[in-house]
Design a protein around this nucleic acid. Structure first.
Length: 818
RNA sequence: GCGCGCUUAGCUCAGUUGGUUAGAGCAUCUCGUUUACACCGAGAGGGUCGGGGGUUCGAAUCCCUCAGCGCGCACCA
């Protein structure tokens, strides 16, 4: 330590935390070393949508949890590759900008809109960056990427071209999920379930012979799109009509009555109306039976001309009017209230429709076995999260639609020949391209030499880019960066939360499998969510939003991180301000304990070769307890169980070190004259305190750096605690025998203390503490009770515990009897 | 409907392959503290481990079953 400086009474986190953050960045503590021969630990972290402009404590929690592991690995000697990115393209960003600026997509130019998006993402990026800094997230900022930058666009376009050439991407014109609000095609993974109250409407169609053909539907507005009725061949009432015709009410045209064994005679009326398209059942039959196509819904969610007088109405309006008209001529027989589940677009909660448009798809449905196999190869932490991945694969129905009819995203590197429909791709050296603005790049069809060239104007799904993060980070397909790719890919670890297993995790597995025929990473660590104090999801609309900045200002980033380390891996964590206070107390306690030690160690020079035979039992005991804590700590951190690792160090620090050992060594440290016993105490406490702050460092980086710099910098090698080595089991001798003996003595002393406390004796702190003298004899540090030393010595020498225990109690009672 | 997770002290949660009296933190109450720390120390009270059944010498832990909460997937004419 610096002798000329007084140790301040208190630790001022408000000034110290930003100070150390700046120090780390300036000193490049967290920089990935491309030249190093050390083992690499590479981490794939979620690039958040910058549209989530307001961060809450849940974000702080999940980023901290991942970062505990990163810091742990760094302090285990790995050359850590820990990048950060912003996902600043795609629909989430567009939705955010539209909402914030109240924009109608159809009333703004593409250019203006993109400029607004870029401006917002820049601001959002800054907010995020400041937030991560204040949380002490140890990112290598030189590795920062943003999904709209040239490198990411190039990689996304290379991905497209590679898949296109491998025939894994196809352009198909077929029914696709469509959002009428966002006016774009969607992927299956963009959909969410939403419960809604609706009606099951019983409506009478007619068979061609005039008999009534009752159907039941939740979507009467699709009557003009009706192309067939289906019934079960065994249906006693309607089976006989198979092969006959039926007549659609209001619109008065004929449709076939067809057979389908999947139609349940007992559901609804036993007659099923099939339209273009109400749901995936309709599509299945449309494909299988070559049904007519009657498109009743436009891309904007209004009815088409085919709907006659209802054309131009919105879906809900059309539904009401059609029901009214049916009611009038008694074709609507009854309405049953029904709760059903609709598929809605997760970004805007609009009910999705099926529209036939040409779109780009990545093949995924045909290769389910590959995805399952990859899922098995991956190490899941915790294991049970794999079931969500498997469930998603089982339920995959459609190939991944990657084209979006939007503005702000990575363009498709595609031109079309209007004459021969040839698809024209750019040269790799021209990437990234924007075909709609780079019209001179492709002017002639290489196949038919036509000059009638049309650029693709769609943009890619945002997951098309973010599914490439491991490849973006390792500069896949950059010949000049092959060595980096070799070093960090496949990555060691992916960290993410559970809700994007079906998107980010799955899509990334698909991409790496197709592009590199490997997994993108070896391990995946899935975190839960930070919830509010009542266990609800944190959101603005619920008014339960806790801003991490407020917490950091009040309790310190270390304290907030401490709370984040509470939850078992994969479990949700409720926001708990009391726990944050405990974190802050722990920071203070670390400060005070270390300060106390260094009051006595001001000129101390640690000698690693100190003769350990000079140690007291108490010294050996605390070193043994530390050794056990270290084992426990590593076992858990190696399994990414940061919470259990934290428990190990928490228990050791508060209970063993502060409450006991620091009391035991006091008499030696305060002792005026130098002795080998005093030296042993100094040696032990230096070693223990240094280990303790190192073990805390991954969880609480600021206070531990402060203490390291203040007291250890001169004698330790590394310029920051965060690149120093964590203590290992092998750093300690096995003192288990002496520790066991010592623990049994401790127990007896505890008994005495309990007894006295129960009798309401006024006992001094020191009296209640056990002290071990340098000659390995046990004494109580109170002269009046010195006679008890003999009793305790006898315990060690083999007398029965119970007996001595009661002797002790009795003698104390006598001592203090009034 | 199927799957996964959860249900343990007033609150938030630990309890590894079944093994002595089920733990921690917070909260409550009591006592203590001039000498690192009141952002402290010692102690007490508080639990039939969601209900029921089973396996076992022995179950919070394994099996069956029921219930509640959360999530995922599917169905959704």
């Amino acid at each position: 330590m610096n002798e000329d400086k007084e140790i301040p009474k208190n630790y001022d986190f408000v000034t110290k935390e930003p100070f150390w953050q700046e120090f780390w960045e300036k000193a490049g503590i967290y920089k990935f070393d491309t030249e190093s021969e050390k083992s690499v630990f590479s981490v794939d972290t979620p690039p958040p949508y910058v549209s989530a402009a307001h961060l809450h404590v849940g974000h702080a929690m999940s980023y901290s949890q991942a970062e505990f592991v990163v810091r742990y690995k760094r302090m285990m000697g790995f050359n850590v590759f820990y990048p950060m990115g912003f996902d600043d393209n795609g629909l989430p960003t567009e939705r955010f900008v539209e909402k914030k600026h109240k924009i109608d997509k159809s009333k703004i130019s593409k250019k203006e809109f993109i400029e607004l998006c870029l401006k917002e993402t820049k601001e959002g990026g800054e907010t995020y960056r400041n937030f991560w800094r204040s949380l002490g997230i140890s990112v290598d900022w030189s590795l920062l990427y943003s999904s709209i930058n040239d490198h990411c666009q190039r990689t996304a376009q290379r991905s497209f071209i590679d898949l296109f050439q491998k025939r894994l991407i196809v352009r198909k014109e077929e029914p696709v999920v469509w959002c009428p609000t966002c006016q774009t095609a969607l992927a299956q993974s963009d959909l969410e379930d939403m419960e809604q109250d609706t009606f099951f409407n019983y409506i009478n169609f007619k068979f061609e012979d005039g008999a009534i053909a009752p159907i039941a539907t939740t979507r009467p507005e699709l009557i003009p799109a009706c192309v067939a009725l289906y019934t079960n061949a065994n249906d006693p009432k309607f089976g006989k009509y198979i092969g006959k015709k039926a007549i659609v009410p209001l619109f008065d045209y004929e449709i076939p009555v067809l057979a389908d064994e999947n139609v349940d005679p007992n559901f609804g009326t036993g007659l099923m109306m099939v339209c273009t398209f109400g749901d995936s059942e309709d599509i299945e039959r449309w494909k299988r039976d070559n049904l007519e196509t009657r498109i009743a819904i436009e891309k904007n969610g209004r009815l088409t001309d085919i709907a006659g007088k209802y054309s131009g109405l919105k879906i809900k309006e059309a539904r009401e009017q059609i029901l009214n008209d049916l009611r009038e001529d008694s074709t609507l027989v009854k309405q049953e209230p029904l709760q059903n589940v609709a598929n809605v677009h997760e970004r805007c909660n609009t009910i999705a429709e099926f529209i036939i448009t040409p779109q780009w798809f990545i093949k995924v449905v045909d290769n389910k076995d590959d995805w399952r196999k990859r899922g098995k190869e991956l190490n899941w932490y915790p294991k049970f999260m794999k079931s969500k991945y498997d469930a998603w694969i089982d339920g995959l129905k459609w190939d991944w639609c990657i084209s979006r009819q939007r503005f702000y995203g990575v363009p498709f590197p595609v031109w079309y020949c209007e004459k021969c429909e040839n698809i024209i791709l750019p040269k790799d050296k021209d990437l990234p391209v924007d075909p709609s603005s780079m019209t001179d790049l492709v002017t002639e069809c290489p196949k038919c030499h036509s000059h009638d060239i049309r650029p693709e104007v769609d943009v890619m799904d945002t997951w098309m880019t973010s599914s490439l993060t491991p490849l973006i980070n390792s500069y896949w397909q950059y010949p000049e960066n092959v060595s980096l790719m070799k070093k960090i890919y496949p990555m060691n670890l992916r960290v993410q939360a559970f809700e994007i297993i079906r998107t980010w995790l799955f899509d990334t597995v698909v991409k790496s499998h197709y592009h590199t025929n490997s997994l993108p990473w070896k391990d995946v660590m899935i975190s839960g969510w930070g919830l509010d104090d009542k266990g609800r999801k944190i959101s603005k609309s619920l008014g339960n939003f806790v801003e991490p900045e407020t917490i950091i200002r009040q309790y310190s980033a270390d304290a907030l991180r401490y709370w984040s380390a509470e939850s078992t891996l994969g479990q949700n964590l409720r926001y708990n301000e009391e726990e944050i206070k405990v974190g802050k107390r722990t920071v203070t306690k670390l400060w005070n304990a270390t300060k106390f030690v260094f009051i006595h160690l001001s000129d101390y020079k640690f000698d690693p070769n100190f003769d350990q035979t000079n140690l007291d039992d108490a010294d050996r005991w605390i070193l043994e307890e530390l050794r056990l804590a270290v084992i426990n700590y590593h076992t858990n951190f190696d399994q990414y169980e940061y919470a259990k690792a934290k428990d190990a160090i928490f228990h050791f620090f508060w209970d063993n070190l502060c409450d006991n050992y620091l009391e035991f060594v006091k008499h030696r440290l305060y002792c005026e004259e130098d002795s080998i016993g005093k030296e042993a105490a100094k040696w032990t406490i230096y070693k223990v305190i240094l280990a303790v702050i190192k073990l805390w460092a991954p969880i609480m980086p600021f206070i531990t750096e402060e203490l390291y710099q203040m007291f250890f910098k001169n004698s330790e090698e590394e310029i920051s605690i965060h690149i120093s080595r964590l203590p290992l089991e092998t750093d300690f001798n096995n003192n288990s025998e002496i520790a066991a003996k010592f623990n049994s003595i401790l127990q007896i002393v505890e008994e005495v203390r309990k007894y006295k406390a129960s009798k309401n004796y006024s006992i001094k702190k020191q009296l209640a503490k056990l002290v071990v003298s340098s000659d390995n004899n046990v004494i109580l540090a109170n002269n009046e009770l010195l006679q008890n030393v003999l009793s305790i010595k006898e315990i060690i020498s083999g007398k029965g515990e119970q007996e001595i225990n009661s002797d002790l109690s009795i003698s104390i009672i006598e001592e203090n009897a009034e």
